[in-house]
Design a protein around this nucleic acid. Sequence first.
DNA 1: ACAGATTTGCAACTAAGTTGCAAATCTTTT
DNA 2: AAAAGATTTGCAACTTAGTTGCAAATCTGT
Lengths: 133, 133
Amino acid sequence: MLKGAKLYCTEPRVSILQAMIKADRPLARNQMVKLLGKNHFDKVTIYRTLECFLDAGLVHKAFLQKRAWFFELAHHCSKIQCHPHFTCTKCGSTECLIGVSVPMIKGLKKGIVIYRQQTRLEGLCQKCNSVTN
Amino acid sequence: MLKGAKLYCTEPRVSILQAMIKADRPLARNQMVKLLGKNHFDKVTIYRTLECFLDAGLVHKAFLQKRAWFFELAHHCSKIQCHPHFTCTKCGSTECLIGVSVPMIKGLKKGIVIYRQQTRLEGLCQKCNSVTN
DNA sequence: ACAGATTTGCAACTAAGTTGCAAATCTTTT
DNA sequence: AAAAGATTTGCAACTTAGTTGCAAATCTGT
Ligand SMILES: [Zn+2]
Ligand SMILES: [Zn+2]
Ligand SMILES: [Zn+2]
Ligand SMILES: [Zn+2]
């Protein structure tokens, strides 16, 4: 993947990419750090690595939560639209709604060009909902 | 409005609410500070004021941009869904797409309850698009 | 193994938002 | 109008995500 994207193939990049592939869900930096365990990299390195993955189109910034960006591999996404993301307001977990389709928006003013459309949902997840009563 | 929401009617609250009504677009704290001009309030006060407006249902957190929340009056919004927001990736401006309708998502797993659905668009605004070539 | 290009890690920084607490302000009662 | 009780304000100090500059380390192609 790295070579395909013409990126230098370095240890942090390989490890971070592996972690993201293994996790297969959106991750924020501190979650990556946990997954990387003893493979410790400076936070600057992680951010810069993610940025270069972004430029190469390998990952997307999926969403911002508690002021931290969550990144996910781009391979489940179409160019103009990722799958929707659902966040539980009670437990804070976020889930990718892969396979749920969202029509592109219509009726915009002329002159605007859309690069990307994103849908976010908030509510109660199955667990929290069943506990609620 | 404040009395209707059973809130203490204080100078910061009145001024901030007036600024938001006058602006009629999503504002982040530092934009409010500019609009308030010589009416200077501590940032803590502004955040706490916005939070109490939130609790009272007067405003919504519209979106997060550059790690700052933008707040807007809730009176254009339905309970489950605000209008979509469009952000220009070139100039960074964000626009409310009032009157553009978005169907609620379907086909979710059972057990999930949706409180809120949100659509975000990214692309080029009219200005930036016409300058581009 | 070398040279040139790129990436890494450190330290210092920026900026949004939060917390505790005493002083100030608001509302209601007298 | 003044007092009492409840709420809000502003300050200082803090937390945390993310950024910047730069020298040292690593990677690639020869
Ligand atoms: Zn939950
Ligand atoms: Zn996702
Ligand atoms: Zn623009
Ligand atoms: Zn809006």
